[in-house]
Design a protein around this nucleic acid. Structure first.
Lengths: 294, 294
DNA sequence: CTATTTAATAAGTATGAGCTATCAAATTGA
DNA sequence: TCAATTTGATAGCTCATACTTATTAAATAG
């Protein structure tokens, strides 16, 4: 004799409670009638409660049985809901992801990801935080972020990184600057200008790459200001305090009196990458990497 | 290989989820560790979801496992409630209700409810448990309580809440304190006193409201002690370690050398509310809500 | 009174939960 | 650095029991 109710008992009980007929219930369950009889009897023994009245050829529920039927229906429904829920969590459609990003990722990559995610997994919550490369790497390692959008060539051990967006660089100059896309010959024309760049701390890869671009053109730029916000840089350019070189994607989204000259022939590209902790098991992270890398 | 989850799996899963250690969990369940391992593995196969991460000697819950733990706790509690309920029905008692409450509800609201209930439904069994706001909300969600008496402004999704008793606040001061109801001018007179309050953990709404009362009077109280029991607070006041502000209802039922000065003109009130799970189908709960809200 | 249908009982079978023994891998300790 | 210990997983076996078929007793119908 068993000492513990099992879900099997509940299925059997429900079938009998619905059919009020052992043979028919047994058929529905694909088991034999005697088997069903013994299991229901056992159930009544375990609970020490009579669930069915079997008088005079008729099967009917007792008061306790009627109560139990409602409860078991609830539990069975709840259970199948849980199973669906589990599947969603496992597939990364339900849950939360914490995203860090550089400002320049907000122009295209992040909105794209959020739209895809909303479409495929509407139940996923996202939290967004604009952070420097360095702060993102730190947060990833300390499990304060699930995913970061950075401009870096390498990441520390334990983290992984993959490029997701390659962009050209563009010169940013005041709106009435004497050179524009049509009469632009090459970066060497800018050798005498003051440069306003993103600070090295904010993204050293960016900084080194911009330096590389100028060196290839045969000069070392005079860097007069460094900032961590595109808005600040554009403001300074607008006020003729210098010119800048930034990822082309930044030309959308700001309303400024500056113009962009895209450096199409330059071999250096602005590469935006995703970074994450290799052993992060958040299923939503996996889902995001799928969306980003396929 | 079995194709259906059983309650046995749930017990085993809970043990491992609590211990995060297979051998210890197996001991607690009085079965062998290999048996437990295979059952958990089977469970993961049936649900097609990984529930535990067993990396590098450490067992931990996955996102799906964490979710399932909460759900299984709920189901197990609900199940044991069903069993008790079945027994009561079978024995001719009509039902049972499990009540949680803050100490201050015992002065008036709870005795009233119990008398009404006894009169209208003599067959109902009640179980009473004094708990903090937070513990009550938890217990309601996990189906360990049917109804709670709390001081909260909001409750989580899935729960419902309704005010049942509005009380004034009263100052509690030593019996021979130089101010009493007749020569009391206003709270500002207490600006220099030490305050002994219910701890913020016990009821943050109470704490914030009391702070609000003092701020409205133009000072920030010096809080020297925090407690979770009215008795303790009154003892401290009696021994001149400070004064307190509490719901006026608490003045009945304690025999202490303290006196109450009711703050009749203060706009803040001490509001006691009932909380319950919206989908709780215990008929006795409905009966109690009727008695309380009509 | 026979034929049919009901659920319960009896006896046998085979499935699988849980056992012991063991392994591989990681951790600890000298 | 290597033996000792501890972890969870695997393999093979055993026995409890869920479920089977065969049968019975009781009720209903024709």
């Amino acid at each position: 004799m068993s000492y513990q109710i099992e879900l099997r008992h509940f299925s059997y009980f429900l079938a009998v409670a619905e059919e009020l007929h052992y043979r028919k219930a047994a058929e529905k369950l694909f088991i034999s009638q005697p088997g069903l009889s013994t299991q229901i009897k056992q159930m009544e023994e375990i609970l020490s409660v009579k669930l069915f009245e079997r008088d005079k050829k008729k099967v009917s529920l007792t008061a306790a049985g009627t109560f139990l039927k409602g409860e078991v229906e609830f539990i069975m429904n709840h259970l199948s809901q849980i199973k669906r829920h589990l599947k969603l969590i496992d597939e990364g459609h339900l849950g939360e992801i914490r995203i860090g990003f550089l400002g320049s990722a907000m122009q295209k990559v992040i909105p794209n990801l959020l739209l895809n995610l909303k479409h495929k997994s509407p139940e996923v919550h996202t939290s967004l935080e604009e952070l420097s490369n360095h702060a993102q790497i730190n947060a990833l390692q300390k499990d304060k972020l699930d995913i970061g959008f950075v401009r870096l060539a390498r990441v520390p051990n334990g983290l992984q990184i993959k490029p997701v967006f390659e962009d050209t660089f563009s010169l940013v100059v005041p709106i009435d600057f004497h050179i524009d896309q049509s009469n632009f010959k090459g970066i060497h024309q800018m050798a005498e200008e003051d440069f306003i760049l993103f600070s090295q701390d904010y993204s050293s890869l960016y900084y080194d790459t911009v330096m590389g671009i100028c060196e290839d053109a045969g000069f070392t730029p005079k860097v007069s200001h460094k900032s961590v916000h595109a808005l600040t840089i554009f403001k300074l350019v607008e006020n003729r305090l210098g010119i800048s070189i930034v990822p082309t994607a930044l030309q959308y989204g700001f309303k400024m009196n500056v113009k962009f000259i895209e450096l199409k022939k330059i071999k250096q590209k602005a590469i935006l990458s995703v970074a994450w902790k290799a052993d992060n098991r958040n299923p939503v992270l996996r889902q995001c990497l799928n969306l980003l890398l396929n």
